[in-house]
Write a protein that binds this DNA or RNA. Structure first.
Length: 313
DNA sequence: GACGCAG
DNA sequence: CTGCGTCAACGCCTT
DNA sequence: AAGGCG
């Protein structure tokens, strides 16, 4: 509930279990898959289940599950839910709350040739940078090889601002540590840790804290203290069995995440200051009515821009 | 996993 | 009542 | 319509 309460949440359902060779649907019409994302509330939902109507970048809407009590995720589990995907917003009396994120999510994704340990080291650098900016971040394992850092923010900014903040932070981190990349195109990333700032777009979610992942051994996206993170050698050791034991015996390191919330301004300042950020792809969306067509720096064109965003040739 | 429909 | 088919995500962009 | 990105 610490991760899901009042948050519009999509489900990742594996109703026939998780076994070798099973596949997650790549799209809504992928009939041969064994698992699928579910955004809209399914028929037959219990009456205690609350929902929130979220708006996608296209302007379409969907009624999503919005857990308010533990029975809701339990029911989802009965439906074969393995992983929960909450939005970075919380339903409240404020009618704008679904458009005002309360959570900045820093997604550190090890690229081929790098490891979880590399991500942990970069996470430490990210922590230092956050501290210098007056922000407190809470780390967790992704459940795979990555690390996620969450920053609780005041719900005063739009998704576009959230994304800009993430780009600003990513570029600052990239500038500070040459094992970090924010390159959108895979072939430009190198053997580095990819800061996936696009996870802060509207309609983009990350596997929640405490969620199982559909992988051998049932690894868990595990909340940790910073010192706890540094001691993890293999994130697969944090699993269905060990994590509940840890949380029971040592307590939950995320209990204080709601005690304070921060301004996005320091990060927006980075976005405005650091060059090249506005050239990153994809651009902000949704495209507003009347907005001129977008010019993507195509892969070919993109190679003509250097790290500072200056045109080459 | 659950629903709707044909049998 | 049983069996079977069907359904269960989103979207931006370029080629 | 398919491919690239998550």
């Amino acid at each position: 509930m610490r991760a899901l309460r009042d948050r519009p949440t999509a489900l990742e359902r594996w109703p026939s279990g998780v076994r070798e060779g099973m596949r997650l649907a790549t799209g809504p019409q992928d009939s041969k898959a064994d698992a699928f994302y579910q955004k809209r509330v399914p028929k037959g939902a219990p009456d205690y289940l609350e929902t929130a109507t979220v708006t996608f970048p296209s302007g379409r809407t969907a009624d999503e599950i919005c857990p308010t009590e533990i029975a809701v995720p339990v029911w989802c589990a009965h439906m074969g839910t393995i992983t929960f995907h909450p939005w970075p917003v919380r339903r409240s009396d404020d009618p704008t709350s679904l458009d005002r994120p309360d959570e900045l999510r820093i997604d550190l994704d090890p690229q081929p040739g790098t490891t979880f340990s590399d991500a942990v080291r970069v996470a430490g650098v990210a922590r230092e940078l956050l501290e210098e900016l007056g922000l407190r971040g809470y780390p967790k394992t992704s459940g795979n090889r990555g690390v996620h850092i969450y920053v609780r923010i005041e719900p005063r900014w739009e998704f576009t601002d959230l994304r800009h903040a993430a780009i600003g932070f990513g570029r600052a981190l990239e500038q500070r540590d040459d094992q970090v990349t924010t390159a959108w195109w895979k072939e430009e990333r190198g053997e580095r840790i990819f800061v996936d700032y696009n996870q802060n777009n509207r309609d983009r979610t990350i596997a929640s804290a405490y969620s199982l992942r559909p992988r051998p051994g049932a690894p868990v996206s595990t909340p940790l203290t910073w010192s706890g993170l540094a001691e993890v050698t293999d994130p697969r050791d944090l699993n269905l069995v060990t994590v509940p034991e840890r949380l029971a015996s040592e307590g939950d390191p995320w209990t204080t995440i709601d005690d304070e919330s921060f301004s996005l301004e320091p990060l927006l300042e980075l976005w405005e200051t650091l060059p090249g950020g506005e050239l990153n792809f994809p651009p902000d969306y949704p495209k507003m009515p009347g907005e001129p067509p977008r010019v993507q720096p195509s892969k070919k064109v993109a190679e003509h821009w250097d790290d500072e965003g200056n045109r080459i040739g």
